[in-house]
Write a protein that binds this DNA or RNA. Structure first.
Lengths: 198, 198
DNA sequence: CAGTTAAGAATACGACTGTATTCCGATCGT
DNA sequence: ACGATCGGAATACAGTCGTATTCTTAACTG
């Protein structure tokens, strides 16, 4: 047996380069060759790690979900809804990369059944765990119990996605972005029926 | 002077073909040649009407805004917020086309300052007119007056965009889509602080 | 009726695409 | 030490892209 490398790790590195490139120059700028240049490999090397370009793109999409879940897991136990939502907003370079790529994939997935299923399942998973969080908060008396937790969870994910789209068009930290974040906070409170941010 | 055609009308026809094609086969399938085939012209004819492909794409984006505004204008005077939001949701083929294209453009615009400005202005215009609508409703006592109309308007557009993304992944009329629409209704009511849909 | 001029078709061109294939070098088991 | 085998680089190929250019057709003006 000759030299052996960690195949999965290499695939992750390449997928990361896809995200960086897609965020910086757009999804249409992603080609085998440009990705190879982005991570300092030869085009042939990149090719060896994925059966097809689509596989590579899907791996990049998966990576965004992995990153999001890792951030969720790193949150303290008493983190509220607002803190969770913030993890999906393009507030730093990493999350901005993910938001751009996910948005582009969402548009493409509208006419590709398999991609659409992948995304829809991801949405549903996030929404379900959010609903679980909300139900516990209702049981603890932290939230009014007269609202449907699933409806609230769907509304919260929609709010998060909607504000993400807006924030993508604004430079982070700009006054308009701050204004949007305040509106998001107010919207979350209204949706949950609480007076102060939880 | 030889034969003269309505240049603007032709550009609109071509932009419509771009929307149809992008919705059916994805933004990446849009090329001068494929658009020409879509509207039964020669590639050279399409080329003559736009200085560059980017111009053509931007015209298609403009067309989505024109369509949305036309639907807004066609709404009865007493139409509520829910009715307005529905005009931007992918509930039929035409609105589905627009939603797909706008989503794809939003992703691309994240690294193109001019596109981003175009979209951000469009968002702001929609949001401002929504805020105006809400302020009037507050003055008429239809809505609680203790909420900031601009924050509510930002939240409503975000909800609309967020649910649009979700709906794009589901076949129209499916049970999941209906479920989402009910959640949207509930979210709008919670955001506005009203018990029944307005 | 000739001539000008716009619309549209066709073609040409260089660049880039994804993928298949070939080739080289390094590393491990034997 | 030798050779099997994998990682990786390089190249080849057919196709498509946007755009520039050329050519044809048709209509209006003088």
């Amino acid at each position: 047996m000759p030299r052996v490398v960690d195949h999965d790790e290499r695939r992750r590195v390449i997928a990361g380069a896809v995200l960086r490139l897609a965020a910086r120059e757009g999804l249409e700028a992603v080609s085998i060759r440009s990705v190879a240049a982005e991570c300092g490999m030869s085009a042939g090397a990149v090719q060896k790690h994925f059966a097809t370009k689509e596989d590579m793109m899907l791996r990049a999409l998966e990576l965004t979900e992995e990153r999001l879940e890792r951030r969720y897991a790193a949150l303290p136990d008493d983190a509220g809804v607002g803190e969770h939502i913030r993890q999906a907003l393009p507030l730093d370079e990493e999350r901005r990369e993910e938001a751009i790529v996910i948005t582009a994939f969402t548009a493409r997935a509208a006419n590709r059944a398999d991609w659409g299923r992948f995304l829809a399942e991801g949405y549903l998973a996030v929404q379900d765990s959010a609903a679980e969080l909300l139900r516990r908060a209702q049981a603890d008396g932290l939230l009014p119990a007269d609202r449907d937790a699933d409806d609230m969870a769907a509304g919260l994910t929609a709010l998060s996605d909607g504000f993400s789209l807006r924030l993508l068009q604004l430079p982070p930290g700009s006054p308009e972005a701050d204004r949007l974040l305040r509106a998001l906070d107010a919207s979350v409170r209204a949706l949950l029926g609480v007076a102060s941010s939880w």
